[in-house]
Nucleic acid binder design. Structure first.
Lengths: 200, 200
DNA sequence: GTCTATACAGCGATAGAC
DNA sequence: GTCTATCGCTGTATAGAC
């Protein structure tokens, strides 16, 4: 794999991952082929196998890179020093950024195809959601403590509800090609979590 | 197509649709083949083409049948004479029934693969969601009027939020293979909609 | 209505030259 | 690190017998 290192984002391997990631987010893991990547990157199918022995290896590397980026984005939100409500909005804006590219969340797409994926990819997908859930749980607990966020039941179940709502909104609203629909759904979700006790 | 008629649920065409529907809900439209159906139904691939000329025709018939069933299920909920909150719970239980079979909502799965589908299938998918939305909007408006359901913003946006949450919960929770996780998410969602003003 | 047989394109993957 | 060439398999779809 030459001079490329883990995290290299300029080499051929990274370009392959970029293209493959976009294809999966639009068409699904079972909806694209090495030929598609080959055409877009400008090298032959055989050369792809040099960088990633098989489609399963490519898929796993793709999820891991995606998850790393997501973790970094969550850390950036934490660093910005916003109140819990603002961090929730920041979290939702990560989804919006993906939808604006007319893509589905990578792991949301792979969750749909879950039962057809090789086991290492399956584990990486659930790890992604576990990490999201833990981060949200922490924010929700903090918000409940300072009174800025209200929700029934546990922070963990509410965290799962938020992930479900955002992933589902991407899933369902993407066909309509209008990001304002997604934004209105997110607004409804967040309003339900931050409203005062005497509202509606 | 012999004695089969639209709505025939015992003939070969219906058996094909049954098997194909299950395959799509588990593996996706791009994740199964005529060979898979052939093996499970017990006829050859060629015979499948007699009933459904191409995969696109099969897919369209599948969505239309699924949507008809869903419409009938919604009508049954309306007929039961429940209050708005109970109807929302009944709506959620339709999703739970599908998840218990370890399947994804057919149209949720197809929404993920949307950009790879033939146009007639795309239109049928969005029609399905439109119908869901209209039904929920009606229930929410009624609930707001009698005071049993509370939500910020419009009934339409909240309807979309509910669909997103349920579809997303199926999507994300199915890999974990534990329906109680899904049920807890639904409980969080519904509790947020039906809580009294002084709760949490 | 279902069969056998087959056409033909596409798939992931490999061998070996450069 | 990329190429050409090719393998074996699977995909959807069709022709024609029964």
């Amino acid at each position: 794999m030459g001079v490329g290192w883990a995290g290299d984002d300029t080499g051929t391997a990274a370009r392959i991952l970029d293209v493959a990631e976009g294809l999966v987010q639009v068409r699904g893991f079972n909806g694209f082929s090495y030929a598609d990547i080959s055409a877009e990157v400008g090298i032959t199918r055989a050369a792809l196998h040099y960088h990633f022995a098989g489609k399963a290896d490519l898929g796993l590397a793709m999820i891991n890179r995606y998850a790393s980026r997501f973790t970094a984005a969550l850390a950036a939100i934490d660093t910005a020093g916003m109140p819990p409500g603002g961090r929730l909005a920041g979290y939702a804006s990560l989804y919006l950024r993906v939808l604006r590219q007319q893509r589905m969340c990578l792991c949301g797409m792979l969750a749909a195809e879950y039962q057809t994926l090789p086991q290492p990819m399956q584990e990486a997908v659930t790890s992604f959601f576990d990490a999201n859930e833990s981060w949200l749980e922490k924010v929700l607990d903090e918000g409940r403590q300072d009174g800025s966020v209200r929700f029934p039941g546990t922070a963990r179940d509410t965290a799962r509800m938020i992930i479900a709502c955002l992933e589902g909104a991407m899933l369902v609203e993407r066909p309509y090609g209008d990001t304002t629909r997604f934004q209105a759904v997110v607004a409804s979700l967040l309003a339900g979590l931050t409203r005062r006790a005497d509202q509606d």
